[in-house]
Every structure is written in C-alpha cells, then in structure tokens.
Amino acid sequence: MINEAAVERHSALAVETRLTVNGHAHTLYIEPWTSLLDLLRENLRLTGSKKGCDHGQCGACTVLLDGVRVNSCLCLAVMHDGAEVTTIEGLGGETHLSPMQQAFVDHDGYQCGYCTPGQICSAVGMLREGHVKTEADIREQLSGNLCRCGAYPNIVAAVKHVMTAAAAGEGGAQ
C-alpha cells in the first residue's frame, strides 16, 4: 500500500523528486536528508528493503537503482530524480516468485530472512553485471551482503543454480 500523502512534506527545503518504484511512478516532495531506504520503508511502506546498519556496511538495503545494485541507505532520495528503483517487492511476490527468489527457497538460502531481500537484489544485480564465472567469484561478489545466520553456502548454491539454469536457457534458445 502506497501512501503518497504521507510522503508529502511541508519543509521549505523539500525537493520535488520523481521516482519510479517497481513500475509505479511517483512525484514526491522529499527533504534532502531522507535516504532512499527510509523513503522506501517508512513512506512508501515497501519494507522488503531492510535496514541492518544504515551505513553501507551490511548490504541488507540493497536495491536495483536503474538496474544497478546499490546500498539504498547511502542514497539520498532527492539525488535520484528520474530514477527507476526495483526492490524485492518488484522482483516477485509471495505467490509468483522470480527464479532467484525461488532458488533461495529451494536451497534454504537464508535463516532469519532479514538479509535475504538484499542478498537477492544483490545477486540479481551481480548476474546482470556479468563478472562472475566461478563459485569463488560469487562468494567475492556477494561479500557486500552480510548474513549473520551464516547461510552463505546455501546462498552460493542458490545463485549457482540460477546461473546454470540461465546458461542452459540461453543455450537452448540459440
């Protein structure tokens, strides 16, 4: 549920900012000290993106900003006028999971689930970047996402599964 009224601020310093979040266009008046993460969680009520440190040290807040994975806690929302943001909610809902989300379920790539949306957004962004080939690459490239439950081996297995399936899919199409 999106409550745009809640986002409207009356501060003189608020800045008009257009954001497309999971395909929905918003025109918002945002105070410059509002992080993209807090905007998503508290104002747009998209609480799938998590706050684990608020300082770019854990990756729980990872979203895709114009398709690129970033720490939304370190983004000031006003700086992203015109941007497209994809959060975990935009990747797939509970009853229609995307392949990466389904792979995390199938490989038990989580425990408490709190770092999970960030892990999944990071993994999706990582595959788009196209720099990983080996398991060691995956581990390195997902090292910006802490998991205190220690689900790393299962996370790597989930990502490998998606990579393999994607490669097979491409091969089939050719």
């Binding site: 770019g56 990756g59 990872t62 690129v68 994975r69 970033v70 720490n71 370190l74 983004c75 990071s122 962004g125 990582m126 970047e129 490239q141 090292s143 910006g144 996402n145």
Partner: peptide, 9 residues
C-alpha cells in the same frame, strides 16, 4: 576495496 554495491556508487 569496499563491496560491489559501494563501487557501483
């Protein structure tokens, strides 16, 4: 250095 997310920004 840092993480992929930070390096992207």
């Amino acid at each position: 250095g840092a993480s992929p997310q930070l390096r992207n920004k």
